[in-house]
Computed example of a mutant assay.
Amino acid sequence: MNRELADEQITSREERRMSVARELEGRRALVTGGTKGVGKAVVSLLLEAGARVLTTARAPPEHPGSEEFVEADITTAEGCNTLVEAVRTRLGGIDLIVHVVGGSSAQAGGFAALDDEEWARELNLNLFPAVRIDRALLPSMIAQRSGVIVHVTSIQSRLPLPEATMAYAAAKAALSNYSKALSKEVSPKGVRVVRVSPGWIETEAATALVERVSREAGVDQDGGRKLIMESLGGIPLGRPCSPREVAELIGFLVSPRASAITGTEYVIDGGTVPVA
């Protein structure tokens, strides 16, 4: 290979890299639950890719960055309305929606520990925010015949842990089913809808869980981490995923590189689920 051809190939690779690095330039994005964990990592990645990002949580971020922020409790209809209005007034429309908000506060004890209030709490956190926000913002996406919605589900929708997260798992399964149905309706109208299903992610909350499990079992943190992995049936990769790894997958799915992908679910769990 002559020097001139080699230089051209290097330049071409560099141009492609720069193109990918700013591939979301000018896109307007909403990330729910974007101040911690996976949500924070998604916000950071979208900003790096050139998007204008608005995010929300119940309390402001400790270290705000370039993103715009709306304080709202989107487990309520009123909070969702507040967020939707902020999207319209601040961003003037929407191109990307990433629903990260979710979680569980249920105590251990199986089905008997889950009263009506706990079931309602899990559904209001893990299902209804996506339903309400999509319903409000999708018409503008359909009108412009473009947009991407990502619903962050969980491997617990297919691998539930009954001791403490039965209601959470059921809510995430409902979110996954809703997402698939929505994709069938709106994909022909130019809007892609995809799901990302993480396993155990080493967020701040996960680190706190490791510390609690270690303390209760009388082992060190490596031992506590091993106990959690065993409760999941093992993680062939040997470790949890990082928030950034999940964000990288989401960043690809909302990008033009994934323009033919819709209606499907991407599992990122280090191999936890035996059969995808």
Results as ranks from 00 to 15, higher is better:
L45F: 10
L45G: 05
L46Q: 00
L46S: 02
L47C: 03
E48W: 03
A49R: 15
G50C: 12
G50E: 09
R52G: 07
L54I: 10
T56G: 06
T56S: 14
T56Q: 03
A57S: 08
R58P: 15
A59F: 02
P61S: 03
P64F: 05
P64T: 03
E67P: 03
E67L: 01
F69G: 09
E71D: 02
E71M: 09
A72D: 01
A72F: 04
I74D: 07
I74G: 11
I74E: 08
T75R: 15
A77L: 12
A77C: 09
E78Q: 14
G79D: 06
T82F: 06
T82H: 08
L83P: 02
L83M: 07
L83V: 05
V84T: 00
E85V: 03
E85G: 03
A86T: 08
V87G: 03
V87R: 09
R88M: 11
T89Q: 13
R90K: 13
L91F: 14
G92E: 04
G92W: 09
D95A: 08
L96E: 03
I97F: 14
V98Q: 01
V98N: 02
V100I: 14
V100T: 13
G102H: 02
S104A: 05
S104M: 01
S105W: 06
S105M: 02
A106E: 00
A106C: 07
A106T: 01
Q107L: 10
A108V: 03
A108Y: 07
G109M: 09
G110A: 11
A112V: 08
L114Q: 11
L114H: 09
D115Q: 11
D115P: 13
D116K: 12
E118T: 15
A120K: 07
A120P: 08
E122Y: 14
E122G: 10
F128N: 13
F128V: 08
V131R: 15
V131E: 10
I133T: 05
I133G: 06
D134C: 15
D134V: 06
A136C: 01
L138T: 06
L138R: 12
S140F: 08
S140M: 13
M141R: 11
I142T: 10
I142S: 00
A143M: 14
A143D: 15
Q144I: 04
Q144S: 14
R145V: 04
G147P: 10
V148R: 00
V148C: 01
V150W: 10
V152N: 03
V152S: 04
T153G: 07
T153F: 04
I155R: 06
Q156L: 13
Q156F: 11
Q156W: 07
R158C: 09
L159I: 10
P160Y: 07
P160T: 07
